[in-house]
């Protein structure tokens, strides 16, 4: 049997234990919280209101007040001409169980309710924090301009678009608020029948705002034209590809004269047959 006394709990011991206790619990809480926060980020496919900052900035700047959604629902311009009643609001606030959208942030699902591209863009000035950036939809005259909205880009799945089959459908073309600008119809000969034309919808990425009215109008079971955030929809060729025939793109790299361009580097000191065979032994 040990004759040792119980360890005395000194003020010093209590201080160290308490400090470790609090720091440890704080760290535990912080780790759980940070882990959840990481999972709570929105999916890259989320469509945000017009003039939203890039997603990372939007998420840190949006206070989740819902003033944009409120302005969207109660906008004066929102009367359906056929029924005389207000249309449902485009902007929704994500709930805890909304798939892939950070809770409390505004988003829209174009297939359900697209953005009707109001002249006065009421949702944007309503934002108190600048998460919806008014400057980005203001034109040179200082007016709000719906043409400058950029929520995403419409993309056509030419495989399921029935216009590409040769059926006569131009619903997306007619639904587009920028008709014949954002979506143009491309006529080509239908060689299967020999006497009809394909009326293929082609989206101009420089004009399309991503409002989603085309996606809403599309008659196929799952829309063959749909809006994706530009980050998702577009590729990026990289700075080293230069359109030599495009004056602006050429200026990007400056006027470099052919005789000043050299391809000489360290490898050029040897003949190709030599350096390619370096390190290879023949026996």
């Amino acid at each position: 049997m040990s004759t040792q006394k119980k360890p005395e709990i000194t003020a010093r011991r209590r201080f160290f234990t308490d400090t470790a206790h609090h720091a440890g619990l704080g760290l535990l809480g912080g780790l759980l919280w940070a882990g959840y926060a990481d999972k709570a980020r929105s999916s890259v496919l989320t469509l945000r209101p017009p003039a939203a900052l890039p997603e990372a900035d939007f998420l840190r700047t949006c206070i989740k007040c819902g003033l944009c959604a409120e302005a969207c629902r109660n906008r004066d311009s929102n009367i359906d001409k056929e029924t005389g009643k207000p249309r449902p609001e485009t902007l929704k606030m994500a709930k805890a169980d909304t798939d892939g959208v950070t809770v409390g942030t505004p988003y829209f699902v174009a297939r359900d309710v697209p953005c009707y591209m109001c002249d006065d863009i009421p949702c944007v000035p309503a934002c108190p924090t600048g998460a919806l950036d008014e400057a980005s939809v203001t034109n040179g005259e200082g007016e709000l301009d719906f043409r400058k909205m950029d929520m995403g880009l419409a993309v056509v799945d030419t495989n399921s678009c029935i216009a590409f089959w040769g059926l006569q459908c131009d619903l997306c073309y007619r639904a587009c608020p920028l008709m014949d600008e954002a979506i143009k119809l491309h006529y080509t000969r239908n060689s299967r029948t020999g006497k009809h034309a394909f009326l293929e919808p082609i989206v101009d990425m420089n004009v399309c705002t991503g409002c989603g009215l085309c996606e809403k109008a599309c008659p196929t079971e799952k829309a063959a034209i749909f809006v994706l955030p530009r980050e998702v929809a577009l590729g990026r060729p990289g700075a080293h590809y230069v359109k030599g025939w495009d004056k602006k793109d050429q200026q990007r790299v400056g006027e470099r004269k052919m005789e000043n361009i050299t391809t000489h580097d360290k490898r050029s000191e040897k003949k190709a047959a030599d350096y390619l065979n370096d390190g290879v032994s023949y026996e």
Binding site: W33, Y36, A37, L59, R60, I63, T102, G104
Partner: peptide, 19 residues
């Protein structure tokens, strides 16, 4: 409060506002 501010700084958005 302290944890919320630290997690906000790490995550890059207001941490308490999502819970």
């Amino acid at each position: 409060i302290a944890i919320a501010l630290v997690v906000s700084a790490v995550a890059g958005f207001a941490a308490f506002e999502i819970v």
